[in-house]
């Protein structure tokens, strides 16, 4: 059973067909999946205040219901090292068509993986693990398993990646925190199974993994078309929905 707060976010996102990033991250956080600390801001001043609290460097992203492919729209700026860079970034992002707010987040580091989920017509919920980042569809280095995952499934997925040596520590780099990755995958698998009737696919890309832990630096949840177009569809807010203030 999904937590009430998660159900509410999904319900509120139905008019858009997908869940805005700050809301998607709240769902992850409520499901035990680490996300970067962050704040949704409406002014450059708020952005700077948030960044001071988070500590530089930070990342700034445009948030808006039409901005589903942020990287393609130039809606992600990183790394941002100081206040003046952040002010510039804020103005650039708010200039993007469709930008409704800006998300300022602490900047994570680590190996870029993708953790994904999809509701397959024949097999139901399936989980994907792969080398992530923007080149994900070029490398095509992925492993898929039917959810719910067991620990041994995650081990086997890691083993199946061509880039597995990068996770295990390669040429002097320390191995990523494997336990944290396994934990993240297992929690993600549980969440996917619980949301199976409401979502079509989920991308956590990138998931940043380093020796200390793993976190989902980006999240995109696409809703099931039938669920999104449900008969009790709420009226879209014509004034433009403001994403909730805390990521």
């Amino acid at each position: 059973m999904l937590k009430k707060a998660i159900r509410q976010i999904l319900e509120d996102s139905r008019p858009y067909g997908w869940v805005l990033e700050p809301d998607a991250k709240r769902i992850l956080k409520l499901s035990g999946i680490p996300v970067p600390a962050g704040r949704v801001v409406q002014s450059a001043r708020q952005a700077v205040a948030a960044a001071k609290k988070l500590g530089f460097p930070v990342v700034a992203k445009a948030v808006g219901i039409t901005l589903i492919h942020k990287s393609d729209a130039g809606a992600v700026i990183l790394p941002i090292g100081d206040e003046s860079q952040l002010e510039q970034a804020y103005h650039r992002l708010t200039g993007i068509k469709g930008c409704q707010a800006v998300l300022v987040e602490a900047m994570g580091r680590g190996l870029e993986l993708i953790v994904g989920g999809k509701i397959d017509a024949q097999f139901g919920p399936v989980v994907l693990l792969g080398m992530g980042g923007t080149g994900v569809e070029i490398y095509h280095d992925t492993a898929l398993r039917m959810a719910p995952l067991k620990r041994r499934d995650v081990d086997s997925m890691i083993k199946c990646l061509r880039a597995r040596d990068l996770l295990n520590g390669f040429r002097g780099s320390r191995p990523v925190n494997r336990e944290a990755l396994v934990e993240l995958m297992l929690n993600f698998s549980k969440l996917l199974v619980k949301m199976a009737d409401k979502v079509e696919s989920i991308d956590l890309n990138p998931v940043l993994c380093n020796p200390d832990g793993c976190l989902a630096a980006d999240a995109r949840i696409i809703l099931d078309a039938g669920y999104a177009a449900g008969t009790d569809k709420p009226e879209p807010d014509t004034g433009g929905k403001r994403p909730s203030s805390r990521a």
Partner: peptide
Amino acid sequence: VSSHTASLAGDYAVFSQV
């Protein structure tokens, strides 16, 4: 497809690995 996962997890890829 609007997500990386949907594009990477095609019908046959899922079939074979599952």
